[in-house]
Nucleic acid binder design. Structure first.
Lengths: 253, 253
DNA sequence: CGCTTGATTGATGCCATTCAACATGGGTGG
DNA sequence: CCACCCATGTTGAATGGCATCAATCAAGCG
């Protein structure tokens, strides 16, 4: 078994020409002090098993904008997110982008048990991953059914969330999309002492999640602000002033 | 362990007022002559295990339009599709529908290892299912890792397909949506001797898959016909005349 | 300070929806 | 077998929501 992390070195700033920017290696750490030890897919493993798994992989540091996996590439890597936020995205032939998922600390990324990576994985913030060669991970998973079960649980949850998002993409208006997005972020992200959420996404990225243009997102945000539903703080800060009214605008089932 | 198939009796004609129409019980069959024995999730089980699994479940016949599981209901049933086509759908608060998946023979439906059924499951054609109480199925799966592995594989594939569909919903034009849909159906469905595909879906259902209105679907189909790309045969028959041109219209990556 | 990048706002146009009328075809009963 | 009916599908015209194009504004940075 060779350890091939070359693909990470294709990482590039989003949209910029490819630069040889290797993901920084952080050295091998044990799992004992890992922040996500109890929430990631390794949570159900005992100490010994977890050590065995950690020997397969290694920690890697990513900068915001770096891409770890490319849509359509052969699937050679999978990973657990230790820290940070990343996007999963697909592209049409002429370059239109759709973000198909956003992952946070303790989430799992990559395509185990499959030949191709179906979507790109790009860091939105600086991030740390616990990166495994797919083949080795697949073997480990097949022989540790507690891990595989947890992976199944996670995948089933992802599928549910993804399908719920299809209702938004296919049937909701721009207003409803933005309202749903804001409440979704409010649920996942921490609020600072002034009640402000710091979005890990630019307007363009929000547009790519919601299937809208940047201008429409901006207009909807301004409208919500004008109606006293939210307040905007700098480029990425949002404070929700009237969660009930926002909830009413989501057209939730 | 009680065997509770009551939910099936809530099955109703699509959109019609609820009628007490029990799913027809077909009696217990062995797996030996099952059409999908080698393709469904039970494919990797040996004869003995498969018999054990089949004792947990039973065959059920559905009529087109009957709904087996309701969005939001507690998850008490899962099933393998033996024959026929079914839709998975979610609804917004005000009744807008989005079809989040279409399943065929040998596919798996329902939500194992979870409390809620996240979407409704409705027969589009007459169909036969191999239906299991979820709790019993979950137990069986947990103790048969080959089955669980296959379920994982299937779920990962579903997730890939679903995410690919998000690109269509969020970023494609009506023309591109319809072209993509037609090629997708051509791949999955059999062609009769005149080269005609019989769609298992009404125009409304196609619209609910693509996030469009019935009129837009109809117009796009008529346009494609006018341009000599397809021919229409009756309400649900389609013949693809120029697959290349259709492919060009999909904006595929 | 000027330059660059990201966000907002405005003006205009187009594509999909909406509302409405009409066509088709499959099924039923005389 | 045909007339009739109802559900489904098609076509037309008008509207509107979102995209597009473009200008302006705000922040960060050398």
């Amino acid at each position: 078994m060779t350890f091939d992390f070359d693909l990470v070195q294709k990482a590039q700033d989003d949209g910029a020409p490819i630069t040889a920017m290797p993901a920084r290696e952080c050295g091998v750490h044990g799992c004992d002090h890992c922040h996500v030890r109890d929430h990631a897919i390794c949570a159900d493993l005992d100490g010994e098993e977890c050590t065995a798994l950690s020997r397969i992989g290694r920690r890697v540091q990513l900068q915001a904008g770096q891409t770890v996996m490319w849509e359509g590439d052969s699937s050679t890597l999978v990973a657990s997110v230790i820290e940070g936020t990343l996007k999963l995205s697909t592209h049409s032939g002429d370059g239109r982008e759709q973000i198909v998922g956003v992952v946070y600390a303790s989430d799992f990324v990559g395509r185990p048990f499959g030949a191709r990576t179906p979507h790109s994985v790009t860091a939105l913030t600086d991030a740390r991953l616990c990166l495994y060669p797919r083949a080795a991970f697949d073997n480990f998973a097949r022989s540790h059914s507690r891990l595989e079960h947890r992976l199944l649980q996670r995948t089933l949850d992802d599928l549910d969330r993804t399908r719920a998002w299809m209702l938004l993409l296919g049937r909701k208006s721009a207003r409803e999309k933005v309202a749903t997005f804001l409440l979704d972020m409010a649920r996942r992200l921490p609020t600072n002492d002034e009640g402000v959420i710091e979005l890990p996404l630019s307007r363009q990225q929000i547009a790519d999640i919601l299937g809208l243009t940047i201008e429409t997102v901006s207009r909807q945000m301004s409208d919500l602000k004008r109606h006293g539903v939210i307040a905007l703080a700098g480029r990425r800060g949002v404070r929700i002033l009237d969660a009930d009214k926002l909830e009413d605008m989501t057209a939730a089932s």
